[in-house]
């Protein structure tokens, strides 16, 4: 069948639609002028201002603490939950409930957590954001690992037991390596989601401990500056690196198994 060249038009148009805003943002971050909308020549000036902005630095540190902490917790708990769901229960309801926070509207989760923290009279701060992000990050890790588990061969675990391994050794030596690509993908997902999460963080953070998205939000309220563009470009770089690293590492671990 002859392929019509015309079909390529909507194909490329889709990509233009997807990436034009991002390209504009990146270009504007190198703008020499003050306006975030009119390009006046190349400069790294805004990256310099960005580095000197104490509020942004503080926000970035907060965000990294929350992202790393919640990713570690979410990965460990999510993996264990996935294994429990796949191997030790047949309840579809529990299955669905374990992954529900992933699709729950952030607003609902945010308000719910805020009410919960108020009820147990917990203070708000980085710890409350960290735990909140663990909740939804865990749901994503569970979903990814759970999918991998359903495709994993249970006879491997039986073979390990048959050869004299205790259930614990079997889990560490056989189950975990089988799940590694899934766990890694889930962890990176939890990490990237946490880094730019706004709604839940907005509800559960204390005014003294804003995360980066909250800092950006409060800056944008007074108008977009090229500084924000520079910051967004850097965030973009982090996300891209995360995606590429995930792809590389899943391919690596998959070729090993």
């Amino acid at each position: 069948m002859r392929k019509s060249r015309l079909l390529y038009v909507p194909f490329w148009a889709t990509y233009v639609f997807l990436y034009t805003p991002i390209v504009v943002l990146v270009v504007m971050s190198f703008n020499a002028g003050d306006s975030p909308y009119v390009y006046e020549g190349f400069s790294l000036e805004w990256y310099g201002t960005l580095a000197k902005n104490a509020a942004i630095r503080e926000g970035l540190v907060n965000t990294l603490i929350v992202a790393v902490g919640s990713t570690v917790l979410a990965t460990v708990l999510g993996t264990l939950l996935a294994v429990g769901l796949a191997r030790h229960t047949r309840s579809r309801a529990l299955d669905a409930l374990g992954m529900l926070p992933a699709v729950l509207p952030d607003l609902v989760l945010g308000i719910g957590l805020l009410v919960f923290y108020a009820t147990i009279k917990s203070t708000l701060g980085l710890h409350s954001v960290l735990l909140a992000h663990t909740v939804f990050g865990m749901a994503f890790v569970t979903a990814v690992v759970r999918t991998r588990l359903t495709h994993a061969d249970t006879s491997l675990e039986e073979a390990s037991r048959d050869l004299g391994a205790t259930p614990f050794t079997t889990f560490v030596r056989i189950t975990l390596p089988q799940l590694a690509p899934g766990i890694l993908a889930g962890a990176l997902l939890a990490f990237t989601l946490s880094i730019d999460e706004f709604v839940i963080a907005f509800f559960t953070a204390a005014p003294t401990t804003p995360t980066l998205p909250i800092v950006i939000y409060s800056m944008v309220r007074f108008g977009v500056t090229p500084e924000i563009n520079a910051l967004a470009t850097l965030l973009l770089l982090v996300s891209f690196t995360a995606v590429i690293v995930t792809q590389r590492m899943t391919r690596l671990t998959e070729s090993l198994s």
Partner: peptide, 15 residues
């Protein structure tokens, strides 16, 4: 894992 019995699986179940 304590039985002096081993099983060769139909799928071999090699790690």
């Amino acid at each position: 894992h304590r039985r002096p019995v081993n099983l060769m699986f139909q799928s071999y179940a090699l790690f």
